[in-house]
Design a protein around this nucleic acid. Structure first.
Lengths: 113, 113
DNA sequence: GCTACACTCAACCGTATGGTTGAACAGAAT
DNA sequence: ATTCTGTTCAACCATACGGTTGAGTGTAGC
């Protein structure tokens, strides 16, 4: 359940164009047209990228007149950050423990590889 | 420079099999064979996944006899976490600011619409 | 009502991805 | 020396991805 969401979020973040869109969106809401202006790709391509971001829950698109205004949803980053943070911490602790073990082992046995 | 690394890291993390491999690796180093045991895919496929993880800097593979022992490298997660954290924070602040603005605007204008 | 605009949808294209199988290679075991 | 084992490599397959173009849809403006 959450796992699949991680798939979508990480995959969405793996593309530089999409990260650029998010960066632009961080400055405030924008229409699809606004977003596509600085990008060297077609409007349709941008629309597709927005679809990916939307499916990942990172962005919402709302119709306003004939425009679609996009907003970012920082909450969707939470799971991904939590995953990263957990593993980073977990691994670091493991490494520390390993380090400690090595020190102790070397100290006791005399360090003969 | 860092940007491209983010591509690789996020892309690597976007696959559930690869996250499973990382989770297994968090419990300690393992050979390619060890890693492939619980997985429902071929050894060759696991080897490929390890290639992806290695290119992203998340895992190192070292030859030990005829085996390859894999270890995780938590440092590689740092950039990704930093990116996420920054944007999450940045966006949250933005949203808070927007919230504040809305409150002020509504308070001043009388809140029509 | 017609035209212009903002956007999405659908079809298509080339390349990447995740999987397979079978051959190849290197180290261990006999 | 031969065989077995652990792993990679290469070729192949199906599907997904990121891009394009052109048609379609709905709203705005005259």
């Amino acid at each position: 359940m959450v796992e699949q969401n991680l798939d979508l979020v990480f995959r969405a973040l793996a593309d530089p164009t999409r990260r650029a869109i998010l960066a632009r969106l961080a400055e405030g809401e924008a229409t699809v047209g606004n977003l596509s202006e600085p990008l060297p790709i077609s409007l349709a391509a941008v629309s597709k990228h927005l679809g990916v971001l939307e499916r990942a829950g990172l962005v919402t698109r709302e119709a306003r007149g004939r425009e679609r205004v996009c907003r970012m949803n920082p909450a969707a980053l939470k799971d991904a950050r939590a995953w990263l943070e957990f593993h980073e911490r977990f691994w670091s602790e493991r490494l520390d423990a390993l380090d400690e073990l090595v020190k102790i082992t070397l100290g006791e046995s005399g360090g003969t590889r």
